Every structure is written in structure tokens, then in C-alpha cells.
Simulated scan of single mutants.
Amino acid sequence: MATTTYHSRSNSFPSQSHPAIENVEDHLCRFRAHSESTSVCANLASLRNLHEGIDDLIQMPSVQQTLSQGNWINELLEGSLKLVDLCALSREIVSLTKESVQDLESSIRRNKAETATSSDVSAYVASRKKITKMVSKSIKNLKSFDHKSTTDNNLWTMMKEVESHDLSVLKSVLILLSGENEKSSKTSWSLLSKFSTQNSRVYSENGAEDLSSLNIQKSTKNMDSKSMLKQLKSSEMTIQEIEEGLEALFRSLIKTRVSLLNVLSH
């Protein structure tokens, strides 16, 4: 991962060091250092903290003046809208995933059988196929997402790096929700890597979460219901944590977008 630093101030920053700038720099340094070995849920929480720092930064008059120059603010608003939409879609997918898991759990408990019925498994598999298609389509749509920095201005580079981290973590969430991991999803990982840059890595590769147990096959015979319930419950707990993390990130993305819109209106 790139190790961009911002110690050399440009005219877009105050002449004196400012706590808001140092706060964002500190969050970015920690994110670069630990994101690849940290779970998706932890990275979602880190992004929330990072956006809080960005919002404080945007409130600075000198930063607002810089963002108002040229077409910067419009480009950042375009990127923020795509991120909000992607996060909203990720929330929808995680909600569908949670619902499918809970439905299968309820069916197994209701039947009180030692094995899951074929109809229960078939309904679950059909739901998983729908979710997988949604994930695949979402990843393909990311081709048009431009998160590269086109200038060496420190403020612009910082803002685009935050955007890049948002995109990468949301990508990793989508892959995780598909029930795949780095060993079983070579095609998906290859697809993701095509749209990644040195600054944009997929963080679930070394994360602690693993939802591969979601991929229950329709052809499975005599599957032990107790074992299945245990796996589903474990997955449900992870899904719940991801859902909470996405909700917090969504609110942060909205807040950042509102701050950018306020700069544009002034």
C-alpha cells in the first residue's frame, strides 16, 4: 500500500499545524499500517473515525476556499454520491443475507428434525444465488469509479485517499457477504484486483470474518441440523456486526456529503 504523507504543506493548508489536519493524518497513517491485517468490521469502524476527522477538516475556512477552486468540489461530490449509493446497496445486500439466514434457522427449528429438509435448503440456496448475483453486478459496476488523485495538491490527495479506502472496504464487504474467502473466490478476487490501485486494497483478504459457511449446497443430503444451526448462528452474529458497521459508515458518508454541499452553496 502506498505510504503517502502530508507533512509538506501546500497553500491549501494553514501555515501553522492544525489539530484537524494532524487528526486526519494520524487516522490515515494508522489505517494504512493496520487495515490489511484487520477485520472488515474493524475497518468499517476506522472509516467512521476517519470521516469524523474529514468533517472537522472541511469546516476550516482555508480548506473550504481551496475546495471551492476549479472543479474540485464537483468531483468530490460525484465520488461521495457513488459511495453513498454503494454503501446503501451493501446495506440492502447484508439485510437480505441476514433475512435468508434467519429464515433457514426458523425453518429448521420449526421442523424439529435431525436434518434440514430439502425444501428448506432449496429456498435458502435460491436466496443465496440472488444475493451472489447482486454482489457480482455491484462489483462490475465499480469499473466507472475513479478514485485516483489527478493532482499533487496535498488536500486533494488526502480527500481522494479517504475515498479510495471507503471504496476498498465496501468492496471487501460485498465479497464477504457473497460467502467467499481468499481461497475459494479466485474469480471474484481477480475481478476486484482489476479495479484496485496500489492505494486501494481489498481488506477482507486477511480479515477475521469468514462467511463461507453460508454457501450451503442444494445437493447436500442428510445435513445435521444442529451443526447447520451452529454455523448459521455464527454467521448471523458476524452479519449483524457488519450491518451495524455499514449503518455507521452510511451516516458518516451522508454527513461528509452534506458538508461538501454546504461548501458548494457558500
Rank of each mutant, 00 (worst) to 15 (best):
P14A: 08
N49L: 15
V173H: 03
C29A: 14
S178M: 12
D55K: 14
M158E: 03
S193C: 09
K148H: 11
S190V: 08
F145P: 01
L28V: 13
S184R: 12
S68F: 08
H51K: 10
V135T: 08
D146P: 11
T38D: 06
R30H: 09
S225D: 11
N215P: 01
E247C: 07
K82I: 14
E75N: 13
S234A: 12
K82L: 15
L81N: 10
S185Q: 08
S164R: 08
L232R: 02
S46D: 08
L211A: 05
A88E: 13
A45T: 14
V169T: 14
R257N: 09
R109P: 00
K133N: 10
V263Y: 06
S172F: 11
D120R: 08
L191V: 09
E75S: 07
R109H: 06
L89G: 01
G207S: 05
A126P: 00
A126H: 05
S172R: 10
D166F: 03
N181M: 11
H165P: 01
L77W: 03
Q69N: 09
G179R: 10
H147P: 01
K218A: 06
S138Y: 05
L67C: 11
H7M: 15
R32A: 01
E205Q: 13
K183P: 01
N222W: 09
V63D: 02
Y203H: 10
K218Y: 01
D166I: 10
S172Q: 06
C29K: 13
H18K: 09
A33I: 13
C29G: 00
S119C: 05
T38Q: 11
L76M: 15
F145M: 13
E52P: 00
K130Q: 12
R128K: 13
K129C: 06
R91P: 02
Y6D: 05
E36L: 15
K143V: 13
V24I: 12
Q64P: 01
E36V: 07
N199K: 15
T38E: 04
G70I: 07
N262E: 15
L81W: 10
N206W: 12
A20F: 08
M159V: 13
I254R: 08
V40C: 02
S149K: 11
S17L: 12
G53Y: 05
D224N: 13
N181C: 13
K171V: 12
G245R: 04
S46M: 10
E78N: 14
L176S: 12
R9P: 00
K226P: 00
S8K: 13
E236I: 07
L176H: 07
K98D: 04
R91A: 06
H51P: 04
S138G: 02
W189H: 11
L44T: 05
K143S: 12
A88T: 15
S8P: 00
P19W: 11
M60W: 05
A208C: 01
S213D: 13
